[in-house]
Design a protein around this nucleic acid. Sequence first.
DNA 1: CGGAGAATTGATAAATATCAAGGTAGGTGG
DNA 2: CCACCTACCTTGATATTTATCAATTCTCCG
Lengths: 242, 242
Amino acid sequence: MGQQESCIAQHFSHYGRLSENERRQLDALEAPATVVTKGQVLWHEGDAARNFCTLGLGWAYSFRYLADGTRHILETFLPGDVIGLREFPFQERLSSVAMLEDAEIRLVEHRRLVDIFRDSPRLTSLCFAVSSYQQALLSERLVHLSRRSARQRVAYLLFEFYSRLKRNDGALGDCFRVPLSQQQLADALGLSPVHVSRTLTAFRREGLVKRSRGWVHILDPQALADEGCVTGYLHESVLLVD
Amino acid sequence: MGQQESCIAQHFSHYGRLSENERRQLDALEAPATVVTKGQVLWHEGDAARNFCTLGLGWAYSFRYLADGTRHILETFLPGDVIGLREFPFQERLSSVAMLEDAEIRLVEHRRLVDIFRDSPRLTSLCFAVSSYQQALLSERLVHLSRRSARQRVAYLLFEFYSRLKRNDGALGDCFRVPLSQQQLADALGLSPVHVSRTLTAFRREGLVKRSRGWVHILDPQALADEGCVTGYLHESVLLVD
DNA sequence: CGGAGAATTGATAAATATCAAGGTAGGTGG
DNA sequence: CCACCTACCTTGATATTTATCAATTCTCCG
């Protein structure tokens, strides 16, 4: 992801092959990188929404506060992901976004997206694909949160991280960094931190997964996928026919 | 929604004013109406995805089967809604869709969407808006399902129906049709049908909501919104600046 | 009037939350 | 280099919510 291979081009290329020209168009979108620090809030729910951004390095998450002061984590963003695209048609941010680590982001004005729509039907299709993929992740999570046990939820989330990281880096091993605390995992899973801890302890005892401060080691990928009832289309290539 | 005011134009006009020309373009998308019957499955998860459709009359829902044979309802579709747009970049259906009532649908080939992308940046933006709004409904539901009590979930879902119906029909009163059985409400809420029944009984006793086979009567809209922790942006106009 | 799906109700069981008390590891300043 | 500090994690005991099972009633439709 150097200067000539922009983050956004990298991300879009998951959904279809890019021509040199298309790549240049995407590269031209991005402003210079901005450095942000762990814990920093990129924007709050309700803020005016005029841009989205790409995440060069580091993890982030979007969240909403509930009436009782608790917090729910809606999405996680991994290096290379696009953040805030879905808010394009809204005047206001629908959720807050905060950084899990020090990171580098690049802003893109929403109106630049309209330029894309005007200039390139193909890139437009790819934008749609990016957005639809995120929506697919969301609905998958919806299914997995609403009616599944704590074990299944935890297994699913860990496996989701695994498979999304693997999509960006085919050489990823079974041991990788996941910079969420148990409190944050709990906020993403709709569980109490205590119960997340118990579940992870059980998984460790059973030889499924080991987790310690920021790292996850998947001991038995197949068993984890089974436990999480992972169906698989998140892996499938989502290439557009054209 | 007669012959000249197509379902899809009607739907899109929620997101921005349509010119006569744009309206014609949208109208031209739709094939003649197809009649479908209650319980009919439009498509199954995993089927090839080559088109989407608009729902002229009647309700529908999308769902996934879980490993244990239970079912989760992901989305509900009301008259005027667009079904299956989010699957545009996927080769396969991500979820099944079934009818809650006898209804009328109109199919649109996915490749016609590419025509729109090529011919009209503005309609493209509106497509994006439609898709993003559905995504917003999904993420709102995600928040409301993962960490809220049964009372809050039920209240939220009923209020969501109320506000979505009201968006299509400003004159809607407090009493309207909701053709989901308690079993189906349970499948959408991630609760057992028994508990849905208890919760609805409690609401009736408290003078919040009355429900009987296919009808909902909201007795105290404000109290229901409070109980469901409805925040409000689903009502907001989502107009594009342009 | 009879039948079938749908809804209600009660009793009990299971899953998860909450509360509270330690324990551990990594970072920091002396 | 050590000691402490702090955030994070673990564990146990108890409380709450919701599921499950089973029996009954309701309501619509033929």
